[in-house]
Write a protein that binds this DNA or RNA. Structure first.
Length: 299
DNA sequence: GATTCGTGGAA
DNA sequence: TTTCCAAGAAT
């Protein structure tokens, strides 16, 4: 089974969301910022953060020159704050090695910190119109169903996933918009939990639908728990650092996770190693680059 | 290839 | 209440 570009693009013309990073005057850098924020993060939560961020730091140069602590505070509770660190680093690389211009080829993009197979192709496609397969979780699910007749995509396999998606791309200049449409279909219609086949433009040619929507057979991996993990502890510690205008003492961090000293120390060491925190000369802790001379606690 | 890395809304 | 899952990347 394949995907009829006319059917998909016809649907996209009607159903496309007006997301701010799709506006005509948005720059490649601002699109790159949106892709960083959208990694494993729902669109609804990215919207306000992206708007504030690109207003405050509209270019790679502005971002590279920004203070890491300011970037982390603007990132807020979007999740996976290492993305903010890597975005900062990517801006520095773009300024230093690409004259401040976001590269337009996949290989150069993928060499940037925090830019992997998906993000590199998304920027090449959505910012520069390049004809490359763009494979995210939505595309993998649509391909699994429409092409392979399976309820769900298996584990990611980048080479095979790219080959699958590349085989679907129209040969002409519609390819970039086709990829956006494929993602949008997965996000709005061909969803993980309750696919709306009744309104799907690919229904009549979808291998999964034609086969009667057979249930998936793949064993589901055990649900990721969060409570009590290092991730939660890191989050709590970072909350304290973000909310304090001045460096905090060890005792202030203890309060954030009093139950387990070993785990708390491990999480703190990881934050330091990841560039999400710094130890000041007097033994306190702060977001990197934050003014370390201040001694008065305030919030 | 399997794990780790946040967060919060919806089912 | 618990579970699922959301435009992934790095190790």
């Amino acid at each position: 089974m394949s995907v009829d570009p006319d059917a998909l693009l016809g649907w996209f013309d009607r159903a496309e969301r007006e997301l701010p990073w799709r506006a005509a005057d948005v720059t490649p850098w601002q699109i790159l910022v949106s892709e960083f924020m959208l990694q494993q993060t729902p669109v609804a939560r990215v919207l306000p953060t992206w708007t504030d961020w690109v207003t405050r730091w509209p270019t790679p140069a502005a971002t590279a020159a920004a203070c890491r602590a300011d970037l982390l505070r603007a990132w807020g509770k979007l999740g996976y704050p290492r993305r903010a660190v890597r975005l900062h680093e990517a801006a520095e690389v773009i300024v230093r090695e690409h004259a401040g211009v976001v590269p337009d080829d996949v290989d150069a993009l993928q060499r940037l910190p925090g830019v992997g197979a998906y993000t590199a192709r998304a920027v090449a496609c959505f910012a520069y119109g390049r004809r490359v397969p763009v494979v995210d979780t939505n595309v993998r699910r649509v391909v699994a169903r429409a092409v392979h007749g399976l309820a769900d995509a298996g584990p990611p396999a980048t080479v095979r996933d790219h080959a699958d998606a590349a085989a679907l791309l129209p040969p002409d200049a519609r390819a970039a918009r086709f990829s956006a449409a494929l993602m949008e279909l997965g996000a709005l219609v061909c969803t993980a939990r309750a696919p709306q086949c009744a309104v799907c433009p690919l229904r009549d040619s979808c291998a999964w639908h034609v086969a009667g929507r057979p249930a998936g057979t793949a064993p589901r991996r055990p649900a990721q728990r969060y409570a009590g993990t290092d991730r939660q502890v890191r989050g709590r510690l970072l909350d304290v650092l973000r909310d304090s205008a001045t460096p905090v003492t060890r005792a202030e961090l203890d309060v954030a996770w009093p139950a387990d000293d070993v785990q708390r120390e491990r999480a703190l060491a990881a934050l330091l190693a990841d560039g999400l925190a710094e130890r000041t000369a007097d033994g306190r802790f702060a977001l990197p680059g934050q003014d370390r001379n201040a001694t008065t606690a305030s919030r």
